[in-house]
Amino acid sequence: MIYLTYDEYNSMGGICDLTAFNRNIDRACGIIDNATHNRIEGMTDVPHRAKALCRDLVEYLARYSTSDMVVSSRSQSAGGVSESESYVTKTDTELQADIDNMIADYLMAETDDNGTPLLYRGAMS
C-alpha cells in the first residue's frame, strides 16, 4: 500500500522530483510494511510519522540506490583549471542500519488503531 502521495510529499518539504519519487515510493512503503507487519495498512488514518518516514526513505533510497558512490563534496577553480570530487560509499550493512534507525526514530512510539505498537514483534494474544 502507498502511504504518501506526491502532493503530500511536496507539502512536507520533499526534495525529489516526481520521477525519483515514483521510482522509490513502492520500495519505501514495502520497507515500512515489512517492519510493521502491515499494521498501517489496516488503520483508519495513516499516522503523520509514517508519512514522514516515507518521505525520508524516498529521499534516502533516491540518494543511495542509484549509485554505490555519492558525491559528498565538489570543488572547481577556473584560473588553474582544477577540479576534484570526493565520494562517500556505504556498505549494505551501513545502508540497512541507517534504514533501521529511521524506522525506529519515526515509529517506535506509534500504535495502530487497536493500540498495538507498530513495531511489535511478539506473539499476538
Rank of each mutant, 00 (worst) to 15 (best):
A50M: 06
A104M: 06
S73G: 15
A78D: 15
A20L: 12
D45R: 11
N114M: 11
G30H: 03
M108F: 10
S86K: 10
V70H: 13
I40W: 00
T36L: 02
E110F: 04
I103R: 03
M102S: 01
D100Q: 02
N38A: 06
A104V: 00
A97T: 04
Y106A: 03
V81K: 10
R49T: 05
C54V: 08
E94Y: 03
E85A: 13
S75F: 14
D56W: 06
A123T: 13
L107H: 04
F21Q: 09
K51T: 04
N101W: 02
D92C: 04
L18S: 13
L4S: 02
L53H: 01
L95A: 01
R49W: 04
I31T: 01
I99S: 00
G14N: 11
I2M: 08
T44P: 04
Y3A: 05
M108K: 10
G42R: 09
G122Q: 10
S84W: 11
D113M: 04
L61N: 05
P117S: 05
T111A: 11
M12H: 13
G122K: 04
G122Y: 11
V81G: 11
A52M: 08
D112G: 03
S73P: 12
G14W: 07
M1G: 08
M1E: 10
T91F: 01
H48R: 09
V46S: 03
D68V: 13
S67T: 11
M124E: 15
E59M: 09
A50L: 01
D92A: 08
L118G: 01
N101Y: 02
N10L: 15
G79H: 12
D112V: 07
F21Y: 13
G14L: 08
C16D: 13
G80I: 10
E110R: 08
I99T: 01
Y64T: 14
I2R: 12
Y60K: 12
M43K: 03
R49K: 08
C54H: 08
S65K: 13
C29N: 06
D112I: 02
Y87L: 11
G79T: 14
P47H: 00
I31D: 03
Q96C: 00
A97S: 01
V81R: 12
P47K: 02
L53F: 03
D113K: 05
Y9F: 10
N24F: 07
Y106G: 02
K51F: 00
G80Y: 14
T5K: 05
I15Y: 13
Y87N: 05
R23P: 07
A35T: 02
D17T: 07
N34W: 09
A50D: 02
T66L: 15
R121G: 09
Y9Q: 10
T91I: 00
N114C: 09
H48G: 07
G14R: 07
E94R: 10
T66A: 15
S67K: 09
L95H: 04
D45S: 12
N101F: 00
L57Y: 10
R74C: 15
T91K: 04
N24L: 03
I25L: 09
N38L: 05
A62D: 15
Y3F: 06
T36Q: 03
C54I: 06
D68W: 14
A35N: 00
R49M: 05
G122T: 10
